Simulated assay, not measured.
Amino acid sequence: MGHVFQGRFYSSPVEGEPYLLEAMRYIHNNPAKAGVCAAEDYPWSSYHEYVGTPEYADTGLLLEMLGSREAFVRFSGSSERVRYRPPARPRLADSAAEEVAREVLGPLPVSELKGQEKARRNALLCELREAGLSVRQIERLTGIGRGTITRATV
């Protein structure tokens, strides 16, 4: 979901089964991520096709990959870190990057990210990358080296 005057959309080919599964989970969970409602409560999604009787979508491939409808529900609702990341967005201006970093980090000052426990720091670095910040922008904002950021966000 974006603003009316936001930049052009972007697309990337789905290559490989892991990417396909993560893309499906990402798409179905967008309403929850946006704070609209849970995936199962969103009426304009193919989620219902996967958990019920399909009318429009060909659900066979993904359900076969996951093994069952129950496995689809478990996979879709899993709290494990979603490895799928949309393709890189157009570069954010540094002023916008600072604002996005503040939104992602909440009450944690950007300057204190470097001193966080490694697992927490790496999770937050991933969130910053997912929010559209480049590795170099994160490096400039946080003082964390490019190598560390790259290893944490691959």
Rank of each mutant, 00 (worst) to 15 (best):
E112D: 14
R83D: 13
L62P: 00
A23H: 06
L92Y: 04
R69V: 05
S95W: 10
P31G: 03
A93M: 09
P90Q: 10
A96H: 12
P90W: 02
P109I: 07
K118H: 07
E112Q: 15
V154F: 07
C126F: 05
A123Q: 09
D94E: 15
R102K: 15
P107D: 12
A38C: 02
Y50S: 02
K118G: 00
S134M: 08
G145L: 06
H3W: 13
S12W: 01
E112R: 15
E49H: 03
Y42H: 05
P13I: 04
A32R: 13
T53W: 00
E55F: 01
T59K: 00
M1L: 13
E103D: 14
F5Q: 12
D94R: 11
L133Y: 05
R25I: 01
V4S: 13
N122R: 07
L141Q: 11
S78R: 05
L63V: 14
S76Y: 00
R121A: 05
P86E: 08
S76C: 14
A34F: 09
A34C: 03
R120A: 10
K33Y: 04
G60D: 10
M1K: 11
G35M: 06
M24K: 03
N29I: 04
P31Y: 03
E127R: 14
M24V: 14
R91H: 06
R120P: 00
K114M: 05
E112I: 02
V73H: 09
R102W: 03
F9I: 02
R74T: 13
L61P: 00
L113C: 07
D41H: 14
S76P: 00
Y84I: 05
G67D: 07
L62Y: 03
Y84M: 06
G77N: 15
A32Q: 12
W44S: 06
L125Y: 06
V73A: 12
M1H: 14
Q6M: 12
V4R: 10
T59M: 00
K118V: 14
S95V: 14
S46F: 01
S45Q: 00
A97F: 10
P109M: 08
K118F: 05
Y56T: 09
V154M: 09
T150K: 11
P107W: 02
E112V: 09
A71K: 15
P43V: 08
Y47L: 01
K118P: 06
R136T: 14
W44L: 10
L105I: 09
P31C: 04
V82D: 13
M65K: 15
S46P: 03
H48Y: 00
L105G: 12
V36H: 05
Y50K: 04
L63M: 03
E127W: 01
D58C: 07
Y10I: 15
G60E: 11
R81S: 03
P13C: 02
G52C: 01
L124E: 09
L113Q: 04
G67L: 08
T150L: 08
W44N: 08
S11K: 11
P107Q: 10
M1N: 11
R91L: 08
A97L: 06
L105M: 12
R121Y: 04
A119F: 03
Y50P: 03
S134Y: 01
S111H: 09
E112A: 15
E117R: 12
L133S: 09
R69E: 10
S46A: 10
P54L: 02
S95P: 00
L125S: 02
T53K: 10
